[in-house]
Design a protein around this nucleic acid. Sequence first.
DNA 1: TGGTATTTGCAATGGACTTGCAATAAGAAG
DNA 2: CTTCTTATTGCAAGTCCATTGCAAATACCA
Lengths: 142, 142
Amino acid sequence: MLKLEPNIKKNLRATGRRMTRTRQAVLSLLQKTRQPVSATEIFERLHQEKVAIDLVTVYRTVHVLKELGLVLQLDLHQEGLSRYELKEGRKHHHHIRCQICGQIEDLLLCPLKKVTKLIEQQTQFIVDDHTLEFTGLCPQCQ
Amino acid sequence: MLKLEPNIKKNLRATGRRMTRTRQAVLSLLQKTRQPVSATEIFERLHQEKVAIDLVTVYRTVHVLKELGLVLQLDLHQEGLSRYELKEGRKHHHHIRCQICGQIEDLLLCPLKKVTKLIEQQTQFIVDDHTLEFTGLCPQCQ
DNA sequence: TGGTATTTGCAATGGACTTGCAATAAGAAG
DNA sequence: CTTCTTATTGCAAGTCCATTGCAAATACCA
Ligand SMILES: [Mn+2]
Ligand SMILES: [Mn+2]
Ligand SMILES: [Zn+2]
Ligand SMILES: [Zn+2]
């Protein structure tokens, strides 16, 4: 079912955690989902699939999966909520969101390597991370 | 006192709005402030200056100033609140924030012109805007 | 110096997310 | 398979940032 599952179970156990029905359900949903999903969306979709899970548990689950490095948390501009996506082998990338319909698409690029060095020189900061996001109109909404 | 004030008053009046004591106070504070400030910070600093203003009014004021295009709203990654800065003649730029002390510094550059075109070709989106932010350690916190 | 529409303060409300705690269930050991 | 310990869950309540309703205050035009 989940190729991921054995590895993930190991990760969980290595930190004194357990693989539970609800964690499997959340992981399974994240695997099916192509777009980053919010806690509420996870909650609603699982209920559609007749999986009983509390919203609090969804929050706690994504938090754990983030700690394990299995899930990435996105805070897109002006959405006022967090979204989550499976990391599973995907490389560093960014996103573009449609202002009308909310569709989010991956941008499989990062143009910031050189700029980061420049910024470190200019500011004397040590740069640790960056967030980059584009917004606009998707083909359907233009 | 405020060079801005006459122009701003015109802007306000042009949209049926009024220049009030509290709006002047918020504008004046934003002028003094070099770093982007949150609504709560505006509230607290004005109270330190013995300016009576309700937090709700701060929210409503920055909202109006944003509508007039006088103020820019920033939602920095994982801060969980919005910050505001005067637009007044400043050009498009980005920010870097120290993960330890929270200091925010302007980055007077934007490396995304070319990438934007590339993204429009690749995704068929019409790109309208972008957000870019760096995080790291400032010189003092390293 | 009014008259009226805008703005303000206060209190209540909304939405995302977190925390406390008792009940439940994972999974190791026997 | 049964038992035992401890992590996890659900429910309720709480936190934090921000918004909304409404009556009182005030900007500003005539
Ligand atoms: Mn993605
Ligand atoms: Mn700035
Ligand atoms: Zn990047
Ligand atoms: Zn830019």
